[in-house]
Each structure stands twice: as C-alpha cells, then as structure tokens.
C-alpha cells in the first residue's frame, strides 16, 4: 500500500513528541525530584538547595514510625471502606432495579441525572456546604432531625470523631455512588440479552438471574471500579481538608492532607512530605499494576460498539446546538 521512497513511520515519533516532552517535564522530572528530596534535609520556606542526609533513609524511617502518618493512613483506609461498601451496595441495588425488565422503572433518566449530579460539583464547595449543613447548634441537618423528632437536642457533628468521619465518608459516598451505578448499568447492558431471556424461560427468579448471570459477567467492571476507587480514595484531599481541616483530633486527617500540612504549613518539611509522597506512590503503583492486568485483555467488538454509541451522541449534540 505504501508508496515507495516515503517513510511514514517517522510521523509516529513526531506526533508523539508533545506528549512525551510534556510527560518528561511535568510528570517524570517532578517524580524524580520528589524522590531525591525525600533523601535530603530540605525544609523551610523558600529553600531549594539539595543536601543529602548522612542517613539517606532517615525521612522514610521518621515518616513510617510517625504516629500522625500512621493515623492518617488508617483514617484514609477507614473512610474509604466506610464509603465504598455502602456505595457498592446501593449502586448494585439500583442497577438491579433499573435493568430488571419486569419492573420497567419509569423516570430512570431523571433519577440518573439527579443521582449522578453531585459527582461533577466542585468537591471544595461541597466540603464547605456540608460544613454549613451540619452546623451546630443551628444548621439545616440539625433542624431537620429535630423537626422529625429523630433527636431531642442538636448534635455537634464537628466535635466528635466518629460523626465527623461518618460525614466525610457520607460525602464521598454521596458524590460517587451515582457514578458507580452508571458504570454498573453500562456493564449490565453490555451482557447479551439472550442470556436473560433464556434464564427467564427456564423460570429463574430475579435474585437467581442477578447472582448467577449478571454478577459473574460484571467481574471485570467491579474489579476496575474497586481499584480506581482505591486509588482515588488514597488521594482524598479536598473534602477532609476543607470540611474540618483534618480534625477533630486528626480524626479526618487523610494521607494527602498530612502531606500537604507537612510541606505547606508549620515548618515546611518538604523532605518529610516527599518521603511520605513516595510511600504513597509505591502503594498506588502496586494498585495500578493490578489495574493494568485487569485492562489487559481487549475486545475489539466492544470498542466498535462504543464508537458507534459515541457517534450517535455527537450527532445529537450537533442537532441540539444547531437547533
């Protein structure tokens, strides 16, 4: 096919240059730089000089044995679990309902739009909004609880460790279960309808169909959701940072907030923050490797279906814009 004398292969390299150069400058170099800083005594605002420590692993040792870092790590895990389990349960329940052909739930479109909505709203704004909503002694949540007689006196959500953690986990849940639901529904719609028809003819019940047919076929998508949610959860920053600034008594301090506080407040311990970042980087890399294996197998048929769907969307967008 190719005409003689012209070598097109070089354009593969040329067109990749902007990506590669940007990656080297703005991702790889900062990662290496962060690693190096982890072995130095770099602290204090405005300093940039590099002096390696006599014991190069000192920062890593200090961070790993630091009680606050350990607490931040366990808080991050705890808040993630407290948000992920209900998120999966509710998302699965809604998926089962919305895709069940016997129920034919109406108004699915509007439910999806409203349930997904919090996901695209600025997390910083949501953190502050919930801070106000859970106000004490007067605040919308307390007012509603008292109006319905659920509590006799206002609750101070901000002052108790467990209520504070629960609210942060709830915000994460509330922002993400709609997303997970849409992902799961897409997965179910990708399952061949003949499987469901056959099961129905054989007289399978709704739970049987769900656990025997739907769930096994969603394995990849569930794994994908699990791993991406974990990676996202490890970076939880906006909500815990702005909701209660990591408090009360560090109960909502996550690793990202810890790293931020080490580096950009107090005594500007860039070296310690860099060491902590690298520890997080290792954890995230292990999770990413997992994800890599999940995504490895490709199915060209599915890619074509998706492309078709995208073209349809584009036509509709064009239609609406020109109308």
């Amino acid at each position: 096919m190719r005409r003689k004398g012209i070598n097109y292969a070089k354009y593969g390299y040329i067109f990749s240059i902007p990506f590669v150069v940007t990656f080297l400058i703005f991702s790889l170099y900062p990662i290496l730089y962060t690693t190096v800083i982890g072995f130095t005594d770099l602290r204090g605002i405005g300093r940039t000089d590099i002096n390696f420590l006599d014991n190069p692993f000192q920062n890593f040792q200090i961070i790993l044995t630091n009680a606050t870092f350990q607490k931040a790590l366990s808080n991050t895990a705890l808040i993630w679990i407290m948000n992920f389990i209900p998120q999966m349960l509710v998302a699965f329940l809604l998926t089962a309902w919305f895709t069940n052909r016997r129920f034919k739930v109406r108004g699915q479109g509007i439910f999806k739009v409203l349930i997904y909505m919090p996901n695209i709203i600025t997390a910083a704004t949501i953190a502050l909004l919930f801070y106000s909503l859970f106000g004490y002694p007067k605040g919308p949540v307390n007012d509603v609880l008292m109006a319905f007689g659920l509590t006799d006196e206002p609750m101070n959500f901000h002052l108790q460790k467990w209520t504070a953690r629960t609210v942060v986990a709830f915000i994460q849940f509330w922002m993400w279960y709609g997303h997970t639901m849409i992902v799961l529904i897409a997965g179910v719609l990708g399952i061949s309808p003949t499987l469901f028809e056959a099961a129905e003819i054989d007289g399978a019940s709704a739970p049987q169909i769900f656990f025997r047919i739907t769930l096994p076929r969603l394995k990849t998508i569930v794994l994908y959701t699990l791993v991406t949610s974990m990676i996202g959860g490890l970076q939880m920053f906006d909500i815990p940072k702005l909701f209660l600034l990591g408090g009360p008594d560090s109960a909502t301090l996550t690793t990202s907030v810890f790293i931020y506080n080490q580096a950009f407040s107090g005594s500007y311990l860039y070296n310690r923050a860099a060491a902590a970042s690298m520890i997080m980087f290792v954890i995230i890399s292990i999770l990413s490797a997992l994800l890599f294996f999940i995504l490895r197998d490709r199915d060209p048929g599915r890619a074509r279906r998706r492309a078709r769907e995208l073209r349809r969307i584009a036509r509709t967008i064009d239609g609406e814009v020109s109308v």
């Binding site: 800083i37 970042s277 995230i284 990413s288």
Partner: peptide, 17 residues
C-alpha cells in the same frame, strides 16, 4: 502503565521545580 499516576504524589518536586 502511567494511566493512573496521580499528580499529587509528585507535588513536592513539582512545587520546588
């Protein structure tokens, strides 16, 4: 392989840079 590397983990080096 670099699909999921978050900008956050390199933020200290990025800031210094």
């Amino acid at each position: 392989a670099i699909l999921m590397i978050p900008a956050q983990v390199s933020s200290i080096g990025f800031y210094q840079f």
